[in-house]
């Protein structure tokens, strides 16, 4: 793979500017902030409704110092814990059911297709209609939306089990229990974990959406609060808070676990760590 940098320029500068991932990461973020600042400066009409990076940084700093975030972060965390917990069990069970038995595959696969396609706002609003203001609404919405995603991954994992390994086990007369434990579960685990990862991130997003619609606490609720007072910097401070947390969860925690536990699986499917 070659860089498209002009040769002369590339020769005049240290190689690490183009090849070192961390250095390029910093360049990338700096470029984003620069473009944002320049656009903000040179387009006066935007200044009325837009905010500069500095304002967002200040608002985020104020948010962190004020400790207001603790209450709402913990509220969201509770909503997600319940919602994701339910999705974890329901999605895994449904995925096994559909992946294992031909009959349930045919009977339920339409529900999975539709479950994934249904707009999340519908789920959030119907949860709000049923459960009203409170913690149940975001938890229920997160569970309903995340379940079909996890189920689909488990289902796909079971379908993609290497038949040759089953034939091999059969040839060696390995017991059924041992095959399930050593071949089937081992094969499905990576897909299950990938589904879990996606479902967890999704739970956070959907819980916030439902909090926006009907809740008295939580990050989504605070985004609504800041919108009421038309404070864009305030909205963005919560968005930054949320996004940084989710990035930490995804790449700082889950991706690291995935890397360790599934080290045998040299997959290139998630090269964007």
């Amino acid at each position: 793979m070659s860089t498209s940098q002009p040769r002369r320029l590339a020769n005049a500068l240290p190689d690490s500017l183009f090849t070192n991932r961390s250095v390029v990461f910093v360049e990338s973020i700096v470029a984003l902030v620069l473009v944002w600042s320049v656009v903000y400066r040179i387009l006066p009409p935007i200044q009325e409704s837009f905010v500069s990076p500095t304002e967002v940084v200040i608002a985020t700093q104020e948010l962190l110092v004020s400790m207001v975030w603790v209450e709402h972060f913990l509220a969201s965390l509770t909503h997600v814990a319940y919602g994701f917990g339910i999705a974890l069990f329901a999605g895994t069970a449904l995925g096994i059911l559909v992946g294992w038995w031909d009959f349930w595959e045919k009977a339920f696969q339409d529900y999975l297709t539709i479950g994934i396609a249904v707009p999340s706002l519908f789920v959030a609003i119907f949860s709000a209609m049923w459960f009203g203001l409170g913690a149940t609404t975001p938890a229920a919405a997160a569970a309903i939306v995340a379940t079909p995603y996890l189920a689909t991954n488990v289902y796909g994992g079971i379908n993609n089990i290497d038949n040759d390994l089953l034939k091999m086990s059969n040839a060696f007369d390995v017991s059924r229990f041992r095959v399930i434990r050593r071949v089937i579960i081992q094969s499905v685990l990576p897909d299950w974990f990938a589904g879990l990862r996606y479902a967890l991130a999704l739970s956070w997003k959907i819980a916030s959406l439902a909090e926006y619609i009907a809740a008295e606490q939580g990050i989504g609720f605070m985004i609504r609060f800041e919108m009421r007072v038309l404070d864009l910097a305030g909205v963005m401070s919560w968005v930054v808070f949320f996004t940084v947390f989710l990035l930490f969860l995804e790449y700082g925690v889950l991706a690291q676990i995935e890397k360790r536990v599934f080290a045998w699986r040299q997959n290139d499917s998630v090269g964007w760590s």
Binding site: S4, Y212, I223, F242, T243, L246
Partner: peptide, 24 residues
């Protein structure tokens, strides 16, 4: 897909983008 510099440069945008909820 074509060169590694762009890959390293744009990966943060893609990753951050994936984490920002539609609501935001």
């Amino acid at each position: 897909g074509l060169n590694s510099y762009s890959q390293n440069f744009f990966t943060p945008y893609v990753n951050i983008g994936l984490s920002i909820p539609g609501l935001a």
